[in-house]
Amino acid sequence: MLKRKRFIFAILAILPTLAIFAYVRLYPIADTLRLSLYQWNILSKNKPFVGLANFRELMGDHLFISALVNTTIIAFGVLILTIPMALVIAALIFHRTRSKMAGFYETAVFIPHVVSLVPAAMAWKWIFDARLGPLNALLDFFGLPMQNWLFDPVLSVICIIILCSWQALGYAVLIYIVGFKNLPVSLYEAAKLDGASGPQSFWHLSIPMLKPITLYVSVVTLVSGFNVYAQAFVLASDAQGAPGRQVRVLVLDMLENSFRNYRVGYAASEAVVLLVIVLVLTLIQFSMLRERGKA
């Protein structure tokens, strides 16, 4: 009897939080799913049901496809750049924890993650600037040809990848450092006696044992990579950047479709595609994590 009473109390206690969560988190997702099946121009009361017509149209939409390709390249590019770098940097910081500079290194790597997206992107835009940027100045100093970083369609994607990785790195390093701190010291001592050098211990022990952390960081990095918007917008979508919005990303395409072209249902269907991609990738990664746990 008491148990039941307590159960009811518990439910009542968490109900307000649950309600807020449902309203701000679950309802928008559900409504996006619903909207993707309708045609709607934001203002009109007329909101006809069109079934999967939005999705059919997406398949032939060149702008959408190019946004999808760009976003995928950026997301995986960030992943491929961030994970190995974060692992190595975290290992270096962790193995230098006795040094007085450890705190400085950790903070230095983490700061980009807390800096607002837009100012950070503006700074990088200056770095990549073809005429005034330090990057080209550096290339010139070493006698290398200067590049049109933000004007070239391929180079501008690379620039976005670099900017996003720079921001994602701090978080990944922080999580990896926690991972390193949880690895038992005796294993490394055993490896030392077994004849392993530092890099060998890193390769044979740290990397495999940090696999769960790597999976988690990959999910987070990939999901945020797929949601890339501000970085692309600032770096490569106004007059100073690539003309004609060369680097189209999914979120940008969605925004344009819903608030410039007033095709909310169509934009919702794009969001659903993005949701499905992220969900599938996350599921794959988590199932890998579970498999490892079974071993």
Partner: peptide, 24 residues
């Protein structure tokens, strides 16, 4: 050395654990 908590490499099989030093 044999450690108090054994310090076996959790991601390696017993054979791999025992052969690790030889592999290195």
């Amino acid at each position: 050395m044999v450690f108090q908590n054994y310090a076996l490499y959790p991601h390696m099989t017993i054979a791999e654990n025992m052969g690790f030093s030889l592999r290195l």
